[in-house]
């Protein structure tokens, strides 16, 4: 596997995501790093997530401070950084998975296509239906392979041509050929990598527009990891993908844009913060911030 900067980065995103909604606004500011979209990229893809000065607290403890960034349609955005820097917390707040944590509190705004995800009349079920998530540890349901994929569509009433939908999702997750003869078998009989691809299939079966991946390959061996990364390339464009990863080579291989989070001292306690957000090439090639440089060159973390 190449550890270099991914060559697909330069490709144009698919046409359907190239909606010019910002013609009257200046070139987007991303994060605290200043303008990062160069002059020649005038028709940047639509902003899917617009995080504005987001701070997250668990009880009295502040996990994340003042994150401002924009995630664009059809791209793969990687969130990297040392343990405890709040990147997973941020990811989970994008589809309100943190709601189940009793002491969770968020300040600032996360806009999804201009709608506040934490707005008063927003249904978290609807949010998650559009913004799918795959977790660090493969968590297939103790059901058959088929039922794992068909479960969510059935819940949503998408019952017509369910077989086709399941097949399409499994093909999309590059799992179809391996499981097509044993769809009725238990999903727990699959290998870890297959289980994780099944979880991805399960997520894309309801056709969300965004996929959030929380260290999807961290529990997998290198071959299964390679399969997941290939899969991400094939899903790119169809879905907006946000991935948290500990593996910097992985971020470099798959992501268009990379956000570096780190722990900063605010007052006395360390708090997660966004340090730099830019094109992956820039983050790994010539980062602006010395902290980013130290991290990506392995001098820290």
């Amino acid at each position: 596997m190449s550890a270099g900067i991914d060559s697909t980065r330069g490709q144009d995103p698919p046409a359907r995501s190239r909606i010019r909604i910002e013609s009257d606004t200046p070139v987007p500011q991303t994060g605290i790093t200043g303008p990062s979209v160069n002059g020649h990229r005038i028709t940047a893809p639509e902003v899917v997530f617009d995080s504005q000065d987001v701070s997250i607290f668990y009880g009295a403890k502040q996990a994340l401070a003042g994150v401002t960034l924009r995630i664009r349609s059809g791209q793969i955005t990687a969130l990297i950084g040392p343990s405890g820097c709040g990147k997973t917390t941020f990811l989970r707040s994008l589809n309100r998975m943190n709601d189940s944590v009793p002491s969770f509190r968020i300040e600032g705004q996360i806009l999804y296509h201009g709608h506040d995800i934490y707005g008063g009349n927003v249904d978290q079920v609807e949010v998650r239906r559009r913004i799918g998530m795959v977790f660090q540890k493969p968590n297939p349901f103790p059901k058959s392979i088929y039922d794992n994929v068909a479960w969510a569509p059935r819940n949503l009433g998408l019952k017509s041509e369910l077989d086709d939908r399941v097949e399409k999702a499994l093909r999309g997750a590059a799992l179809w050929d391996e499981v097509k003869d044993r769809l009725k078998d238990s999903a727990l009989g699959l290998s870890g990598g297959q289980q994780q691809r099944l979880c991805i299939a399960r997520a894309i079966a309801i056709e969300p527009s965004v996929l959030l991946l929380d260290e999807p390959a961290s529990a997998l061996d290198p071959i299964a990891t390679g399969a997941i990364e290939e899969l991400m390339h094939s899903l790119k464009g169809r879905f907006t993908i946000v991935i948290v990863t500990h593996n910097m080579q992985q971020a470099a291989r798959v992501a268009d844009r990379t956000a570096f989070f780190s722990l900063e001292m605010s007052g006395e306690k360390p708090t997660g913060a966004l340090i730099e957000f830019d094109d992956t090439e820039t983050i790994f090639g010539r980062p602006r911030d010395p902290r980013t440089r130290d991290y990506v060159t392995g001098r820290f973390g």
Partner: peptide, 22 residues
């Protein structure tokens, strides 16, 4: 397992669907 419930609710399942399905 919390994992399983999270997995189900991340698929846009309502609370009842999580209870019934998982």
């Amino acid at each position: 397992p919390r994992d399983l419930q999270d997995g189900a609710s991340a698929l846009g399942a309502t609370r009842w669907e999580v209870v019934r399905g998982v």
